[in-house]
Structures are given as C-alpha cells and as structure tokens.
Design a protein around this nucleic acid. Structure first.
Lengths: 337, 337
DNA sequence: TTGTAGGCGTTATCAG
DNA sequence: CTGATAACGCCTACAA
C-alpha cells in the first residue's frame, strides 16, 4: 500500500482501475448488481493500492445526512448524565452513528448556541436534556420536523418525545421505604427548583403525595429545593432545629453527596441519627458504610430508548409518537434507612 | 422571520439582497473591508429575513477542515476518563471546536475502526487514550503528519506528544506516606498489566522503586496486576495468608473499589486491619468513612493541555514537539492510612 | 454494464 | 467594491 501524501479521491481510484468515477461509487456503495466481476476486482485492488478512504463530508453534503447526532447534556457533572451518554453512544455505535457531546451547563444561551452549531454541522438529530428555557427554539425545530428527543426533563408546551423516569414513583418508593422502617418525620432535599426542571419538581410532588398517602404530614421546612452551594446551610437549619426530620430523601447524586458530607462533618450516624435514601444509584452505594439505600434509574435502557427513537425517526421508520416514555425506578435496599 | 421549509442557502440570501453569492460569502466571513455599508445592511436584513444558517458541511468540504476533533477513550468506565473528556470539551468549546467521543473499550479493533471513521469524517485531529496495540496505524498517521495527541498512556515506538501522569511519582508519594505512617508490609493492586498499559506498569515499577528507596522489601505476592474480575480472588489469597500486607495501594479507581468491597465484605477495618491509598482522587473520597487518602491526577490541566496541543497543531502554530508531558500527582491526606 | 454531466452549499480567484 | 466561475469529493439520473 503506497501511501501518497495527497488525499486520494474516487477519481484517483477510477483512473487507477481504468473505470469511471461513477462505477467506483457504485462499487463503494455495494451496488455491484450489474458490475462485471473483473471490474469489481480491479476497483478493489485500486482501493487498497491507493489506500483510499471515502470522504464522508462530501457524501454528507450530497446526501444531506451526516450519520451523526448531537447530545446536549444539561449538566455533565451528574453521574446520571454520563451514564446516559454512554448508553446512547453504545447504541449509536451499532448503527454506525457518531455522537457529538455538548455540555450546556444549565445555561439556556449555551444550549441555544449548541443547537444552532449542531444544526449547522448538519447532524441528523439531537437528544437533549432540555433547560426548559428555550421553548420557542424547540418549537421551531418541531415545526421543521427536525428529529429531536428529550431526556430526563419534560417541556410542557413542546410536543417532543421525552424519555423520563417515573419521578413520582421514585419518591413513592423512597417514602414507602421510610414508612416501613418506622420513620415518620421525613424530608426531601433537591437542587434548586427555580428553572422548573421537571425531575426535581416531580420528585418533590411525588414526595408530598406519598407522604399524604402514607398518612404522614410533612412540614414545609422539611422540603428544600436549593442550589447545591446552599445545601449545607439549609441542612444546618433543618437538622439542628428542635424536632428535626429523622429521614431525608436526596433528590439526586449531588444532593446525596451534600447530605453525606454534612452528616460526616457533624459526626452524625446513619441511619441512627438520620436515615437517608438517595435517588440515583451512585457508584459507591454498595461500598459505603453504611451501604446506601438508593432509588436507581434504568439509565442504560433510557439512553438506549432515546437513541432508538431518534435513529428510527431519522431513518424515516414511522414510530408511533408518544409524548412521554416513563421508566420505572427501582429500589436498592441497603442499610442507610 | 419567515421560516421557509426548504433549507435556505447563500444563494437565496444573495437573491433576496440583490447581490451575488460571493458578496454574501464575503459578508458572512466578516470580510467587509471593501463592502458598501448599504450592501452590508441589505445582506444582514436578508439573512435574518430568511433565517439563514450556514452549512458547515459544505464549508468543511471546501476548506478541508471541520472544526471538530475526535476523542477516543480507552475505557469510559474510569472516572478519570470522563473528567479528561470534560476538560477537553471545555477547552474546545472556547475555540468553537466540537468533539466526537468514542469509547474503544480497550479493544484495538474498535479503536482502529474509530480512527478510520473519524478520519473519514475529516475531523481535524484526534486525542487518544491509546490501546498500544495499533502501533503501525499510529505510525502511519504520524507519517501523514496527522494531528494526534496521546493521553494517559505512552506508546514507545510512536513519536507523538503524550500527556502523562508522573506515575512513578504517584507511587512514590503513596509509598512514602505508608512508610511515614509506620507501615512496612505493603502491596499494590492494579488492573491487568498484560497489554502493557503504561500507567499500570509505571505505577508498579514506581512502587517497587519507592519500596527499595525506603528500605522496604516487597514480596512478589504483594504485587498484583490482574483483571478486575479476578481481584477479589487475589485479595483473598493475599490478605488471608499468614503474614499479609498491612497496607495496599490501589492502582486506580476501579481497583480501589474492589479493595473497599473486599474490606467491607470481610468486615475489616480501615486503616486498622488494612491501610489503603488509592490513585485517582475518587469523588467519594472525602465522604467515605474513613475518609480516603488518595493520590490525585490534575485531570483538568491534563485534558486542557491535550486539547491545547492538538488545537495549536491543527491551527498550524508551531509548538515545540515534546515527547512526554508529565503532570504532577498530588496527595490528599485523609484517614485511610 | 459503464460513463457523462450536473449539482449539493461554500469559498477562492480573478476580473470588472 | 462586486460578481462570474471554478473548484471541494461524492452521488445519481440518464445516456450509451
């Protein structure tokens, strides 16, 4: 294989093989139905003689498809996000699609810029953890019938398939567990609910609902949705007041982390001084002391489903449109509650 | 802004503004030096009248550059990998580059396939956690002068800039810490060293060296490089023999995980029954009980450096070629040793 | 069964 | 200051 320095194109192959460009193109796209065996061989030879590699950019331009999708993650620092991305990548790889990953950092401006950039790069579709703030942008994408799937979060006024955890159920599972273990004074801590990020809201709603169903009254002070940076202070208020909660549900990995940090710093003991359940089955749950009871999300199924829906839509397979795909959370009973 | 369904091209803008395509192109590329103010305004109007978005694929084809780089991760399940990727993404974003992330799963075939695919997509360069098994492929890329940077691992016969941790130093730090705390019987556990993955080998070498320097004799049985799946069995052998090691260095996050699991299952106490230090400053180190002493890598600097080197090279800025860039590990003294 | 010609959307060159 | 015109590498009618 003589590697010429210049990029070798279809034209070179054609010349080398003594056929025309189109014949080579046919060959490359496996349309050898009407092709002479001999030509076929000559082309094959020329191809690896020259070390020819197709230029996908040129192909994309012509075919208006890039076999690439974009994934815009709201906040990559959640373990959940990387698990989802991994799962999407895995599925795409099987279909020979590539993914471009972008981290919007919960910033609608950044999200918008990324969406525009990805479209400019002609990606065939996008999977978004939506910030919920770019509603008209999402809508205009829909108008154009641009393939898009939401994941983790749901945007009310936008008709786009959304892959979601059954967040209320997640809270229900946790609350029921608390109740079964005899805890009556329970609370929940999540990230800020300000930008109405669906999971947080639904988890809180589910929590309140479940408490009611189980005959518990939850003090408002025991329900906190605040910035990560403010959690320590909130915990201090909540746990050091008279009659504090006995059990706390962490809305996600990051809040769980903050709770554990607090507990540790204040030399409290889990579950004696405070019972804890975390939503998201964090990696260290089973080796933590005590082992952490968690509510897990089926991340791999969720990512796969998102990718599957998107690719099908891209390929034009009619899939029944469904507003929301809810996935079942599962409880991992360990010893923190 | 009337959104036509058809994709709007430079040609449409030109017609709308009553100028030629080339003029529009000039405008779009900020070359208005010689452009009449009035034309400029007309074009600007036309652009958002039509909601024009440039087609980067077409531009790529013409300019032979895609403002995209590929990142091939050897194994995405190490926290380290995702941190590096995040850091690369961050740097690239500032330069308006995008990244395509691929997970080779330590499989040379997959790595090869990805490299070819990325090249076909005309990415401007790649950052690779090399499997070390595709030497001739790496070499041929070098021959073509294709921009590439290695990270985490080093491939002896390939002249490519590599971003590395000073792995020996990492082991030295750990061993010295053990020694200072009075441990004499120490061991190390890493993943399999079979495919001569540099960090693992260097960490073991550094460990042995450091032991010697500190006047310790390390039993061969206390040095293990095995598959993750086999670690539990090895630990059993190592720790339940007469005269077992008092302290263990975990070669990375995954092995640390295995050690902690073992310790937990066998109700051992850290550091009383076994002192532990882990290379990689795992996320839960500070909330674990006991807090975990770790040797951290400056992942964010490392990722940034890799991206910086690659982008500079892509942009044609001459950067002094350097074989290996070594980064300093740091110790986080906590309570597991 | 193979070849010719034209076009995908941009940019670059060079006149005008 | 602006506009033809020709590429970039590939694909696809349609013609031969």
């Amino acid at each position: 294989m003589v590697s010429k320095n210049r990029t070798v194109t279809i034209k070179d192959v054609a010349e080398e093989a003594g056929v025309s460009k189109s014949t080579v193109s046919q060959y490359l796209n496996n349309r050898y139905e009407y092709m002479g065996l001999e030509t076929r061989e000559r082309i094959a030879e020329a191809v690896d003689e020259l070390g020819y590699q197709p230029n996908i950019v040129a192909r994309s331009l012509k075919q208006k498809t890039s076999t690439t999708i974009g994934v815009i993650v709201a906040n990559i620092s959640h373990e959940f996000s990387t698990q989802i991305v991994r799962s999407i990548e895995e599925y795409c790889n099987e279909s020979n699609f590539h993914i471009i990953v972008c981290n919007a950092e919960d910033d609608p401006e950044k999200e918008k810029k990324y969406i525009e950039m990805l479209r400019a790069k002609q990606v065939d579709g996008i999977i978004v953890f939506p910030t919920s703030m770019n509603i008209s942008l999402y809508q205009s994408l829909n108008l154009e019938d641009y393939p898009m799937v939401f994941i983790d979060r749901y945007v009310p006024d936008v008709k786009t398939s959304s892959i979601m955890l059954d967040n209320k159920k997640a809270s229900h599972l946790a609350v029921r567990e608390f109740v079964e273990r005899g805890y009556k004074k329970i609370g929940i801590v999540t990230n800020s609910t300000e930008n109405n990020v669906t999971p947080r809201i639904e988890r809180i709603e589910g929590f309140i609902e479940a408490a009611r169903v189980n005959g518990l009254i939850v003090k408002n002070d025991f329900i906190k949705g605040v910035e990560i940076e403010a959690i320590q202070a909130e915990l201090e208020k909540m746990l050091f007041r008279p009659d504090p909660p006995e059990a706390l549900l962490a809305g996600n990995d990051l809040t769980l982390f903050e709770i554990l940090k607090f507990v540790k710093e204040h030399k409290m003991e889990i579950p004696k001084d405070l019972a804890v359940i975390g939503i998201d089955d964090v990696s260290f749950a089973s080796i933590y002391d005590p082992e952490l009871t968690t509510i897990g999300q089926p991340t791999s199924e969720m990512g796969k489903k998102a990718a599957e829906l998107l690719l099908k839509r891209i390929k034009g397979d009619e899939v029944a449109f469904q507003d929301i795909y809810r996935f079942e959370p599962f409880i991992k009973r360990r010893s923190s509650c």
